[in-house]
Design a protein around this nucleic acid. Structure first.
Lengths: 100, 100
DNA sequence: CAAACATATCTATAATTCTCGATATATAAA
DNA sequence: TTTATATATCGAGAATTATAGATATGTTTG
């Protein structure tokens, strides 16, 4: 973890909606309805569910999630037409160690 | 630590200069010259030294430090005409626990 | 008390981020 | 193979942040 990446990560976390999403993704089953096809949250939550819960536009949330994935805060897994995002605990740990 | 405070803290950390200052303050003695009057860094580093090392204007750095202190990332101690800033490890730990 | 010094605050402009609607792309379903 | 669904990307205007110079405030020193 270098200064540049840590700054990008902090930028992602510096918006209440994005930080809230990170919190929700700690426990997807308590914050989101079950998916239509998948019977689990192993790969996280799909964009639509996150968008509906956040209450911002689809494009905004999609951009948020894409950026969070680019700095490896989130991991993206595609299943058919759905994109699932889950937390990358490893990155969070490295960021945490960087600032402490 | 609630969402609002955590967001403010992340905002402070989301700028490369501010994040760099937090890093420098981990080891003041290796990054800053000794102070004129104080023989230690127990209360951190004075604004001028941080400003000179960062290379931004006095007003900018002063504003940075004041804001970082407002969300308790830094602790301010005044000695005469100098303001010393040091890291607040407790807040960093709480922020860290919040995101993990 | 006046001058010098350290820091804080004010004001303003440039740069960046926020957020949306529109549109494009990709997959699935009919 | 058209249509519906899910997500991504583009373009733009509004809001916020970055940053500086000027100035104010508070402290020390002569």
């Amino acid at each position: 973890m270098d200064l540049k990446l840590a700054t990008e990560i902090a930028k992602c976390l510096s918006n209440p909606t994005r930080l809230q999403i990170m919190e929700w993704l700690k426990e997807p089953e308590t914050h989101f309805p079950p998916h239509e096809t998948l019977q689990h949250f192993n790969d996280g939550v799909c964009v639509t569910y996150i968008q509906e819960k956040a209450g911002l536009s689809q494009s905004t949330i999609s951009t948020y999630l894409t950026n969070m994935e680019k700095c490896s805060l989130l991991v993206l897994t595609r299943h058919g037409k759905w994109s699932y995002f889950k937390r990358n605990e490893e990155t969070l740990k490295e960021f945490s160690e960087f600032i402490l």
